[in-house]
Amino acid sequence: MDLSWLWQALSNNWGSMASVLGLGVSIATFLVAKRAKTAAEDAKREARRRNLSEDLQDARTKSEQAGLFINETKWDIVFVRSQEIASICSLVLKRWSDELSEASKEQIRLARDEASSISRVATRASVRQPSESQLRSLTAAQRKLNELLSSELGESLKVIERSGQPR
């Protein structure tokens, strides 16, 4: 087979051929870099979500402890725990503002409000023992707080699990 025409074409247009080849290499490099960037961003987003889940987990643990200390009428510890929960909620709202949906923000805000109302009642309770009905309101608020934090923690873990699945 006579391939002289090919040789001729290559020698006449080597500049254009090299350009086409260069363009192909550039596109391939761009695609690889883009995939690497997306993977890095996904990993970063997942790491942030994990941090968010850890904070919510911490708040929920403190809320469970607050429940135990309410039962044991250890008001000073209830006050400290509820203040800590309110602070964690405020921190979560500020730090993960971009990661949280509006509904989640609302739930966390409500959790912070419940925690701050628990701390107010605990402050008074350390001076004067609360009545039966006051205790019922306090216990219900602690249960609600736990519910809100658990629900948000679940939501956050769901997002992490989804992001870990192959696309």
Binding site: L110, D113, E114, S117, I118, R120, V121, S133, Q134, S137, L138, A140, A141, Q142, K144
Partner: peptide, 11 residues
């Protein structure tokens, strides 16, 4: 609205 830890208080 949600009840708070205070009696007769809602948020």
């Amino acid at each position: 609205w949600e009840p708070t830890a205070e009696e007769d208080e809602f948020v």
